[in-house]
């Protein structure tokens, strides 16, 4: 689980900003928050170098608690800190944060409604070489099922910074999923995240692609390719998975013939699940879910894994075309 130099999975974007991992943006945002607010504290479970809470730890050693390789204890300790008025950010890899400590999150964070911010990194398949044991593909499903929990997947560094600031001001349990790999900037510089609000890049007439996390970039690229073939494809960044932006989702379904969801997560219980649950009751339309198809991942380069699991822009294009032609 050591740090390795990362291959540049993404090329430099036209914005001129070099791709950046959302975990890096998290570490920097947490440090800045720590400078502004003395009630911000951080916890980690022996992965502070990887989750980037180490930046905060170095600057504020008294407000940082390394709990060791003990995720359940970390979550309970975070709940206790929150109960004394602190705003704890507890971080480790997404697979351990949500899986290993699920009952602790349920009882001491959600049921007790404590002001704990669970910011996990290494979400999804793009963990890469470490393989399936370290690739969280069920974390959103696990967190979304919990009452009182709010669930967010930022798409890039800009959104991550905004999310971290927003959740520090929000009172209540939050789960944020960040990634390991560098991702291009997709959001406007002046973008501001709001809980429960999606960001609409474009509302399509033929299809609307509802994406989250790294799949927002793939969805944007897919929409460009589709437009060359005369297909009007909308792209919506549904970073706030819970609460879901139901209003935007409804208009996306009413405006187009097809909805496609795209996520770096199992097609069961994540963004695709949330969209299907809502639309099946309020505006039944044809839906295609793009995600990991009820399987574990495996070792490999992130780019190879995205191809293997059909999570590229080309895969989205393929799905849209074949679904529209039916």
């Amino acid at each position: 689980m050591g740090e390795r130099p990362q291959a540049a999975e993404q090329t430099e974007e036209s914005s001129g900003k070099k791709p950046k991992a959302t975990r890096d943006a998290y570490g920097e945002a947490l440090l800045e928050l720590g400078k502004k607010r003395s009630d911000i504290v951080a916890l980690d479970a022996d992965l502070s170098g990887s989750t980037k809470t180490a930046k905060f730890a170095k600057e504020f050693p008294d407000r940082f608690f390394n709990i060791g390789i003990a995720e359940q204890d970390m979550v309970g300790t975070a709940a206790g800190l929150a109960l004394t008025g602190k705003v704890p950010f507890a971080s480790t890899f997404a697979v351990f944060e949500t899986g290993r400590a699920w009952d602790q999150i349920r009882l001491t964070v959600c049921y007790s409604n404590t002001n704990v911010k669970l910011v996990a990194t290494h979400g999804g398949i793009t963990v890469g070489e470490d393989g399936a044991s370290h690739q969280a593909l069920e974390d959103i499903a696990l967190m979304r099922a919990l009452p009182n929990m709010n669930v967010i997947i930022p798409a890039d560094a800009t959104e991550t910074t905004s999310v971290i600031n927003a959740i520090a001001d929000f009172t209540g349990p939050v789960y944020v999923r960040c990634g390991r790999s560098k991702v291009p900037y997709v959001m406007p510089d002046d973008y501001e995240f709001k809980l429960g609000k999606a960001y609409v890049f474009h509302m399509g007439k033929d299809v609307n692609i509802i994406a989250a996390g790294i799949m927002v970039d793939a969805a944007k690229k897919a929409a460009e390719i589709l437009s060359q073939d005369g297909i009007d494809a909308g792209v919506i960044n549904m970073a706030s998975i819970k609460p879901l932006d139901e209003e935007t989702l409804l208009s996306a379904a009413q405006n187009a013939k097809l909805i496609v969801t795209a996520e770096e997560h199992s097609i069961i219980g994540g963004l695709g699940g949330a969209v299907c649950e809502y639309l099946s009751e309020h505006c039944p339309v044809p839906i295609k879910r793009i995600g990991v198809n009820d399987s574990f991942g495996c070792s490999g380069a992130s780019s190879d894994l995205l191809k293997l699991h059909k999570l590229t822009a080309e895969d989205i294009v393929e799905t849209v075309k074949s679904s529209l032609n039916k």
């Binding site: 504290v41 608690f65 359940q72 204890d73 979550v75 309970g76 300790t77 975070a78 709940a79 206790g80 800190l81 929150a82 109960l83 004394t84 008025g85 602190k86 704890p88 009952d103 602790q104 009882l107 001491t108």
Partner: peptide
């Protein structure tokens, strides 16, 4: 789970 929460409270 209580002891973990107790620790967090004491640290806070």
């Amino acid at each position: 789970q209580g002891l973990s929460v107790a620790n967090g409270m004491a640290l806070g």
